[in-house]
């Protein structure tokens, strides 16, 4: 066991790092209630006035709606593709198995500009106009790995004897899948889907290359911050987005944490 002094020092370090991680987030949350439209610290009084003002902004609502639709469709695609890949890698030995597990990670392991730029030149090459669907294709591509990782990790933890027992008791493969395998992986599937949606909802870099003239919510925020315009609205949106993405992430952790705390 570590000495007492070491443990105290380590604990202090952890506290400092946690402060480093969370103070900016708490600070930005406060700015949403800033009474003034000047972004300086300390904020000059508290007010809720920017919340209705932000909701009244048509561009913001359109961007939010686009982000939600793109995120939902990309997540659905990622669930289908990622689950298939996870089952294939877990259950079978086949040529290209390693390549598949590597290829799934690639869109997120490679720098964002590479993925964005590659997809962009791909769409241009085939003469595809950048549109809602090019956004969806990009998001689905880098979301596959999230679902894949979650489902694969769960499959590895479900003992093979469970399915064998089910078959021994006379259940067919379909029955076994529906009554044994699927319930065992369902929470991992939900967690993967929630995290994939959170990732899609937040992504900027790849999206700037695949969106064309449309704005997802992060693109709108990026544009506004860069131009220094509508910053009170940005403060509000940023707080709402922080709160909203915390929900799926928290849910994802809730449904996957088993009682042993793994």
């Amino acid at each position: 066991m570590e000495r007492r002094a070491t443990r105290i020092l380590l604990g202090l370090w952890v506290a400092l790092v946690l402060a480093f991680l969370f103070v900016p987030i708490l600070l930005i949350a406060l700015y949403a209630f800033n009474a003034s439209n000047v972004q300086s610290w300390p904020i000059r009084g508290l007010s809720l006035q920017w919340f209705p003002a932000t909701w009244a902004n048509g561009e913001v609502r359109a961007a939010l709606w686009l982000s939600i639709r793109a995120g939902l469709i990309a997540t659905a695609l990622a669930v289908i593709l990622g689950t298939g890949a996870a089952f294939a890698v877990h259950r079978y030995r086949f040529p290209g198995r390693d390549a598949l597990s590597f290829g799934v990670v690639l869109p997120i392991a490679l720098p964002g500009i590479i993925t964005g730029m590659a997809l962009n030149s791909f769409f241009v090459f085939w003469g595809m106009q950048l549109s809602f669907w090019t956004i969806v294709i990009g998001h689905a591509t880098f979301c596959i790995v999230i679902v894949y990782n979650n489902v694969l990790a769960r499959l590895r933890r479900v003992p093979r004897s469970l399915t064998e027992a089910s078959m021994d008791l006379g259940a067919g493969p379909w029955m076994t899948f529906r009554r044994v395998t699927f319930p065992a992986i369902s929470t991992a599937l939900i967690a993967g889907a929630l995290l994939a949606f959170a990732l899609s909802f937040d992504e900027v870099i790849v999206t700037t290359f695949t969106a064309g003239a449309q704005n997802t919510l992060p693109l709108w925020i990026f544009g506004a911050i860069r131009l220094g315009q509508e910053l009170p609205e940005v403060n509000v949106i940023v707080l709402v987005v922080l709160a909203l993405t915390a929900v799926p992430v928290w849910l994802a952790y809730r449904v996957t944490m088993d009682p042993d705390g793994r």
Partner: peptide, 10 residues
């Protein structure tokens, strides 16, 4: 998992 842009902006 919380917004990348929010954290940079902060």
């Amino acid at each position: 998992w919380s917004s990348y842009l929010a954290r940079v902006y902060a």
